[in-house]
């Protein structure tokens, strides 16, 4: 299990970005990390992937400090979908095959290719397998990015704004695919999200960050008008519709 314990981080010495933040990505859970732009959501993920080192506290992977875990071993346990990936001239198949990099010695095996083919099939990408990434639409590309993370077959999946720039139907599709992977393999997922309705529809735990500290953490019961106003400075109503909570800005 991946766990951040009381981590702190700052880019400038006297301006801490994160303070005393804890988050455990437990198996079978889908945590939404919410908060205003610049509150440290993506930085928290970068600490949890060991891309940055916390100035205080620690990040543990299966009880071991993450910095002490070998890079490849880490990549076999944590998959990370960055908000800054580039669609280059790789085919969909080759791009997804890249997700098997942590398991390769020098070249992909028949098993690696079989896993890729299976995931492409399951995600409805079979017809796109030999198309170049830079020929795909934004929605198709994001599903390829997810497929690449899925073939890593990790216990933990971290997503940094996975639905950015997608239309509503593709946003739902991406989140549905993540949820089905949680159900199928029992993985733990944490995602930085901006759309609270998307988070309420698909996630089961919510972490609100405000000014670099955890303002609230819990199930959907913590998503209240008062909480939204405190974190986003915005008035909103939280209503029930067809058994699902919805946030309606006022």
């Amino acid at each position: 299990m991946l766990e951040a314990r009381n981590v702190a981080f700052s880019f400038k010495r006297d301006q801490p970005l994160l303070r005393d933040v804890s988050l455990a990505v437990e198996p079978g859970t889908f945590t939404a990390i919410l908060g205003q732009n610049g509150c440290g959501k993506s930085t928290l993920l970068s600490l949890m992937t060991a891309a940055r080192t916390p100035h205080a506290g620690e990040v543990l992977l299966d009880g071991m400090p993450i910095a002490k875990v070998d890079r490849r071993e880490r990549a076999r346990k944590i998959a990370f979908v960055s908000q800054h990936s580039h669609a280059n001239r790789l085919t969909v198949f080759d791009s997804v095959l890249l997700g098997r990099r942590p398991f390769m010695d020098s070249a992909p095996t028949a098993e690696d290719r079989a896993i890729v083919a299976r995931v492409l099939d399951e995600l409805g990408l079979a017809d796109y397998a030999l198309r170049y990434l830079d020929e795909l639409s934004g929605g198709e590309y994001q599903i390829v990015v997810l497929a690449r993370a899925f073939v890593q077959q990790t216990e933990t999946l971290l997503l940094d704004e996975p639905t950015n720039n997608l239309d509503p139907s593709n946003q739902q599709e991406v989140m549905r695919l993540v949820r089905s992977e949680i159900k199928r393999r029992g993985i733990g997922v944490a995602a930085v999200l901006h759309d609270m309705n998307l988070a309420l529809r698909h996630c089961d735990r919510f972490l609100f960050l405000k000014d670099g500290v955890v303002d609230a953490f819990g199930d959907e019961g913590i998503v209240t008008p008062a909480q939204i106003e405190r974190v986003y400075g915005m008035k909103a109503d939280v209503i029930e519709h067809a058994g699902c909570k919805l946030v309606a800005p006022l």
Binding site: R74, F80, V81, R101
Partner: peptide, 23 residues
């Protein structure tokens, strides 16, 4: 040639490459 897969990962972005265990 030994680094060919690393280059594929780096071209996709530093975040992706780091996430795949590429130094």
């Amino acid at each position: 040639f030994v680094n060919r897969w690393n280059y594929n990962a780096i071209e996709g972005g530093e975040g992706l490459a780091h996430g795949l265990g590429v130094p």
